[in-house]
Simulated scan of single mutants.
Amino acid sequence: MNTLAQKIIDAHGGLDTWKTFTGLTAHLKQGGALWDLKGHGGKLGETNVTVGLGDEWASHHPFGADGKVTLFRPEKVEIKDSSGRVLEELEAPRASFAGHTLETPWTDPQLAYFVGIAMWTYLNMPFLLAAPGVVSEQLSDWSENEETWQRLKVTFPKGIATHSTVQTLYVDADGLLKRHDYDVEIAGNTPGAHYIDGYTTVSGIKFPTERRIFPRQADGTSLPEPLVVSIDLSDITLR
């Protein structure tokens, strides 16, 4: 493994500790401009998410005011009622975004796919750096907010459903994540700069609890507005 990747994993609690768990649940409060833009304002303003650790799946509950539950896997998305009855499903969900731009509205299953890949990626990072087929490469350092951050280019294999094949992590001197860049392929390759803060420790693993995503410019700098997505996490539980 790349030495910087190893440093980042160790800083967040270490791979051996991480591998003792198979799932994670957290409470989310979310805001930002994206939800209204996609036609789903308020639907996931306050919800819970459960994700697999390693195994790629995620579930949001409730999904909207009527208490629906989602189940995301890369090959299929399901939306169920509170009793577990499947109300909607979408096979090969990634293909359904063909031709989308940032302004294209999403159906409920498409929203469930987006938040599924997003939260699974965020909550499994940085331990995804050790996943089979994931390749990492150290880039030149980056200066921002009077700090110098190390950068790691991460290339994902086709078997992992995430925002984009190539992503970039920024970490501080201790190896903790500060920023995470990607292009949202399912929304017209929209570039984002995702800022990370508010660390807490749960069962020996360090998790950021504050996430803020802004537009990213061609030179790598971010714009201060609009706030595209905000995510605040609490009640994180590993099992």
Rank of each mutant, 00 (worst) to 15 (best):
G39C: 11
G54F: 04
V154N: 04
M119P: 00
L87H: 04
L169G: 04
D108E: 14
G99D: 13
N48L: 08
V115E: 06
V49Q: 10
V115G: 00
Q110I: 04
K38E: 01
S143T: 14
S96H: 15
L37I: 08
E147Q: 15
E88G: 08
A112M: 05
A92S: 15
W120K: 07
G64T: 05
V166C: 05
A98D: 11
G64Y: 07
A65R: 06
L111W: 00
E78D: 06
T165Y: 02
Q150M: 03
W35S: 00
G41A: 15
S164K: 02
F127K: 01
L169A: 12
P62E: 11
F114W: 15
I79V: 14
L71M: 06
A112E: 10
G159D: 11
G54H: 05
E56M: 13
G39F: 13
E91C: 08
P105K: 05
A58D: 04
V115A: 00
P93V: 09
D81Y: 02
K38H: 00
Y122E: 02
H60C: 14
A131R: 04
N124P: 11
L34D: 08
A161Q: 07
P105L: 05
T104R: 03
L111Q: 03
A118N: 11
F63R: 04
R85A: 15
E146C: 01
Q138E: 15
L71Q: 10
G116I: 10
H100C: 10
F63G: 05
P62I: 06
K43C: 07
V115K: 01
T121F: 06
A161S: 15
S59Q: 12
S83L: 08
K153E: 14
Y122W: 11
F72W: 08
G32K: 10
K76I: 14
H100W: 06
L102A: 07
Y113L: 03
L90Y: 12
I117M: 01
A95H: 11
A95R: 07
I117W: 07
V135Y: 03
G42M: 09
P62L: 09
F97E: 09
G64C: 07
R85V: 13
W142N: 14
E103S: 12
V154I: 15
W106K: 00
V77L: 10
G45D: 13
T47L: 02
